[in-house]
């Protein structure tokens, strides 16, 4: 069922019911586990810190969430690993100022994730080698 709700979710501000649901889910995690919300946050930070000791991760994209299935809570972590190339691309500033309006938008920090991925594709040496073959 992605028709109405799904379409709206991406576009507009969340409704007050959606906000209530999210807030409830969060508060119930600490109610049920008897762990203060501040402690939950602390734990999430600690988990990320431990993982960072062993592997490079894309910290901006890390999601550690509590999920509820039936009446049980699960701690679900979505931790993208940092690829070597992606890491380099991050260091280099993305160059794309062809279209004025879109360039302004890409300056927003939220939008930074996607252009980086595009940059990595361009930076791959295989692409350069492919062009002579076509000719």
């Amino acid at each position: 069922m992605t028709s109405l709700l799904g379409r709206f979710k991406g576009r507009r501000e969340p409704t007050s019911a959606e906000i209530a649901k999210e807030r409830l889910k969060l508060v119930l995690v600490s109610d049920r586990s008897d762990l203060a919300p501040e402690k939950l946050h602390e734990m999430q930070t600690a988990i990320i810190d431990v993982i960072k000791r062993y592997i490079r991760i894309d910290e901006m994209e890390v999601q550690i969430k509590f999920e509820q299935r039936d009446r049980k809570n699960y701690l679900v972590a979505d931790i993208p690993l940092q690829r070597e190339r992606a890491y380099e691309a991050l260091a280099a500033p993305p160059e794309s100022s062809d279209e004025g309006e879109e360039a302004e938008e890409s300056e927003l920090p939220e939008a930074s994730a996607e252009p980086e991925e595009e940059a990595t594709v361009e930076a791959q040496p295989e692409d350069d080698e492919a062009e002579p073959e076509k000719e």
Partner: peptide, 9 residues
Amino acid sequence: RGDMLSVND
């Protein structure tokens, strides 16, 4: 209107 939790919520 999305201003009250639905039954399924």
